[in-house]
Design a protein around this nucleic acid. Structure first.
Lengths: 229, 229
DNA sequence: ACCTGAACACCGTTCAAGT
DNA sequence: ACCTGAACACCGTTCAAGT
């Protein structure tokens, strides 16, 4: 925003930090070489001295998010160091989810990168280590990694709403739309009615993502316990 | 590509079909109002008569993919109409996955849309119906929907590779990169070694996505069977 | 009803040039 | 070493105008 004279020189780190702030505030679509530069009090072309173009910038953003997730997961894991594998993985995944909730654009960004950010592999390595300590074979650990999928990185699966991205979502419109097609969706309507029954807020926003997230984790953990070989 | 004189007039349907063909062939990034129009033998501005701008075009694409998934899933379900819920859901999800494999850009597109395409709800409705017939409560059906997540739409979770998008992925580069950091990733390296052991092709491409996909399905199905209430 | 030309406000990126 | 101005080839979109 307010850019005085460039006190400290531009750097890759400063550019990435500004990019994250910009995207947190205004969404991925607002991230433009020109806008980013303007926010840094610099011309767009200056960015090319520190970053290999727009794609490189996006790669940097992806790596930064993964690093944040890994740091949060590592910290969470440290607090339950002596516990069993599922408690430790659970804490890790929940910490990752907290990071994702702070950066709702992250799933969309990671999905759009042509290659998995390198930091992801370090993150996987820790998960495999925990599974091995828990007595799992490499085979099951491998399958577990696939089964966790984006859950391991904290992606909450949005069932009734935008899958990822930022942007303003109009709950009322979505609800009206759904109501309009209610007679064509008898089972969905009935399910919503049944579930809204004991929810505080009987709207489309009735899914408690935290509860659903943890339910899915337990489903997978239970299954893995049983598949242990 | 080759555009003669406009024999049939432009229409929303023709524009969407051309857009899908273009994106299948060259990826989402190649989809431009101007390029799409050129392929149809028309000026870019003509598209605005049939579509509400680029976002509307992308929404149309998303709806088209969902419709294709739903049709495939419905057809697959019909072949196992008398069977139990898990066989029926399995066939549905595998059919959806086959569609996704034909349109590798689809996960990225759906993730980028600000709102869930309306067709998704009809698809969910069928899943809930199947679960209800299988004796599940609405509560568990609801949780199952969340637990399935993008699996229900056939999204294979890519663990070691691009999450979605098109684009050329260089296996060799990725493999070299991974090898370079092997000493920092002892568990991942060991797992790959152990798993590659009995694979035909001991490379990064060693994950058999079909097998992993089905393993995850069974994990979830088993868990739901047990959670039945 | 359907399509277009010209124009506008934006992009990312290059390249030679400044300091 | 770090930054910039001017320029290029692209975007999506508008609007008044054509047929």
């Amino acid at each position: 925003m307010g850019a005085r004279r460039p006190r400290e020189p531009l750097s890759r780190e400063r550019a990435l930090a500004a990019a994250i702030a910009l995207v947190d505030a205004e969404g991925l679509a607002a991230l433009t070489m020109r806008r980013l530069a303007a926010g840094l009090g610099v011309e767009a072309m200056s960015l090319y001295y520190h970053l290999p173009g727009k794609e490189g910038l996006l790669d940097g953003l992806a790596e930064a998010v993964i690093a944040e997730i890994e740091a949060a997961a590592e910290a969470a894991d440290a607090t339950v160091a002596g516990d069993d594998w599922r408690t430790r993985l659970r804490q890790r995944f929940l910490a990752a989810r907290a990071v994702m909730l702070r950066h709702p654009w992250a799933p969309g960004l990671l999905g759009s990168r042509p290659t998995v950010p390198a930091g992801v592999y370090a993150y996987y390595d820790q998960i495999i280590a925990t599974l091995r300590e828990g007595g799992f074979s490499y085979r099951i650990a491998h399958r577990a990694l696939h089964a966790f999928g984006s859950l391991a990185l904290g992606f909450a699966q949005e069932v009734f709403r935008p899958a990822a991205a930022g942007g303003t979502t109009d709950v009322d419109v979505a609800e009206a739309e759904l109501a309009a097609m209610a007679e064509k969706l008898p089972h969905l309507t009935a399910m919503m009615a049944a579930e809204a029954h004991d929810a505080d807020d009987p709207t489309l926003g009735w899914c408690d993502s935290q509860v659903e997230f943890e339910f899915t984790l337990d489903l997978l953990f239970d299954g893995l316990e049983r598949a242990r070989g």
